[in-house]
Design a protein around this nucleic acid. Sequence first.
DNA 1: CGCAATTAGTTAATAGTATTAACTAAATAT
DNA 2: ATATTTAGTTAATACTATTAACTAATTGCG
Lengths: 197, 197
Amino acid sequence: MGRPKKEHSLSRKDVIAAAIAGIDQDGAAALGVSRVARRLGIKPPAIYKHLENGAALQRATAITLWEQYLIECQQTLADRPITTDLLKQLGHFTRNFAKTYPGRYQVMMQVQLQPQDPEASVVIHKLLAFLRQALSDYTLTDPQLIDVMRMVNAAIYGFIAIEQAGLMTIERSPDESYEVMLAGLLGAIATISKDSE
Amino acid sequence: MGRPKKEHSLSRKDVIAAAIAGIDQDGAAALGVSRVARRLGIKPPAIYKHLENGAALQRATAITLWEQYLIECQQTLADRPITTDLLKQLGHFTRNFAKTYPGRYQVMMQVQLQPQDPEASVVIHKLLAFLRQALSDYTLTDPQLIDVMRMVNAAIYGFIAIEQAGLMTIERSPDESYEVMLAGLLGAIATISKDSE
DNA sequence: CGCAATTAGTTAATAGTATTAACTAAATAT
DNA sequence: ATATTTAGTTAATACTATTAACTAATTGCG
């Protein structure tokens, strides 16, 4: 038999949603053709009707995760008063996000997006726009902003990776340590910003 | 037949060396039980006589790569005059290393070392000692040094990942951009160092 | 020396993964 | 009503990791 029998068949979106649900339940390793198919109650080859192959499934899922992360981040920061600076709040949101959804965060950081892919390009530009807003205190050109995004993302990722690996050492609490790093990043941004004067 | 016939059998070191050779030739994906066994001319199960399982093979290989990276780095920086500051030179060496050995660098950054593992612990402490030397201009406590290593490693990794993914944008050359980021990191280190006064 | 234990392999089997090809039935569109 | 498209199927191929059972060569020892 070809199709099961009735009505509503699945879409690309459903596949990605199932992938994300799987990641939340079973970790980043659940992001594969077979695992996702099993969760949807279909056979693995059916996935190929919706996505080119396993790598495309990974990329599409990672892009969706970045989009959802950004939306959540914007909502969270919108509620809070604008007393402390936004970069620190962004840093804390991200660390929190990584703790709540370790699988999602791992996928976001490990799956390499392809800038040729228009979907990836769109979400990257959204992230840049948000970062510019969060850094409105600083004067940054577009390329400087990209430098900053790289550095911020990377530093936060590195911190979280080491923290989750249990590599944190005794003498200072991770919370404190994280504050110090975020402050350091602000120092770095100031340096970059000053450079252009 | 059990053993092939004669003399010299393989050691754990040989297995790891073969893994590294495979990574250099075919990329990080070559770091698997089957691929390494094929390269050694033995059957996959024989690998388990030298390493507990596939994950252990990955970790042991990553540790060896970090050790070799450190040795190369020390040699390279030892030759040069100490005119510019060492952190920048370390940054440039690392970016160069990643360009020369993309597979090795990917493995080093993606394989999570386990701090319980004494071998991993040893190499981490060696890296810290080297970084302290490179940052002798700054006054840093031990935990601050760890903060700095996190940040430096992560920022450089993020930069390189984005560069290798082709995500670099037009307006500024990657070289310039990298300089700016390293300068930013120095600013961050200064901030961290000042904090303790 | 000779025998036992260890070592480093083997083969065979299980189970999981991705992927392609050929097919089919339901839904859709002309 | 019929043809096409869609979303699935099954079957097959080809990898991957891992375990169990076995074996032959080497090593250690009385």
